[in-house]
Design a protein around this nucleic acid. Structure first.
Lengths: 121, 121, 121, 121
DNA sequence: GTGGTCTAGACCACA
DNA sequence: GTGGTCTAGACCACA
């Protein structure tokens, strides 16, 4: 679980943020639940604690989790994870499609791509 | 012309590649035409010559432009710019939409976004 | 009673010290009275016994309470709680106002803040 | 310049943030100006580059400076430094004064403290 | 040279 | 044990 792509251009800590946001927004992890400690998760993922720390702090800044020094990190209530994720994704799609339009892709072509993605899996 | 976003996370040289590919594929610049020299363009854009150089090299590697030592850079004929651009954009869209699907966006929602983009401008 | 903010940056044991000093100096708890045991208070507050222990020790060191081995903790007479508290608070205010002055807040502005606080509640 | 207290309980990177915000809001550093590089400032202060980096990133997140990868860090225009600083300080003062009120300090006493601070220097 | 990310590992206060 | 900060130092892409 929590697959990382160490080769990717997107930093590990950002991948972590995205993956965890997804897990939370999908209900795999739910409100109030305790997250693995920074060190434990780092060990499991074969990654440096600082990297996990950075991801956790960013998630906290976005109100998705909260950390209590000396106790651990927990999933915040009033789950903003999903909304934040969706907003990010929608703007990513908008950007990509805008570029497509500028490049000369027609609307049917773009919609074709969308259909394809939703047909798979 | 040739607006760059110096703050953006996508490297300037990539922005340059995209913008120039677009201009070529849209016919703003056409086959055989000479491009501004690396240094001239760098000066105009307020950008490091290395950066422009990198963009030109990449464009040449993709057969979109060609350089003649001592004379300058020119737009290649048999314009592949458009196809290359489209391929890139299609994979960007695919990626973004896939993420959207994973996040729980429904197909109608995504198509809504597409409609929106094509309605504007 | 005894509201704690587990999220706050100021350690729980310090919050405990402040709150208890306040209660004592306000006469809610009075001279000679017995305090709840470390364990009982910890349980009631949902907090680690170590934390309560630390607060009690600090309060004892300041002569605000005293502990009798095997019997419990009691409120000291000749209540110094209030003076200690005030001293601490005065230096906190001094520090904050000094920073305000350095930042460019004018004296009337600061006094405005003070007025505001004393107007409420 | 830029005195740090390495012993202090407030982290170095936070001290850096505050000091730099002050310098900017006081006009010592002004809009568009380039800041010392992460490494240079770290060297000058005898501090690890990561620590400076953290401060710079926080300042960027607050819109006080902006960083261009490969070029450097610059002071943002539309100086929000001052407002952010003042807001922070005002809430610090409010908090301290509220505690003072709760502790039994009278309004004249608190105002006395304020007068004192503004008399010095 | 410049910012950004990351590892390895230490130390601290707190729980 | 737990989060938070920090050092020392490496590597990368970019300018």
């Amino acid at each position: 679980m929590l697959q990382l792509d160490l080769q990717s251009r997107t930093p590990i800590y950002e991948q972590l943020i995205t993956k965890m946001s997804e897990m939370i927004s999908l209900g795999v992890l739910s409100s109030g639940e305790q997250l693995p400690s920074v060190r434990a998760l780092a060990r499991d993922l074969g990654v440096n604690p600082n990297t996990v720390q950075k991801a956790y702090q960013e998630l906290e800044r976005n109100g998705i989790i909260y950390s209590v020094s000396g106790k651990g990190s927990f999933i915040a209530s009033g789950n903003s994870a999903n909304e934040i994720l969706k907003k990010q994704t929608v703007s990513k799609i908008t950007e990509a499609v805008t570029e497509g339009k500028r490049t000369g892709l027609t609307k049917p072509q773009v919609i074709g791509v969308v259909e394809l993605v939703y047909k798979e899996g």
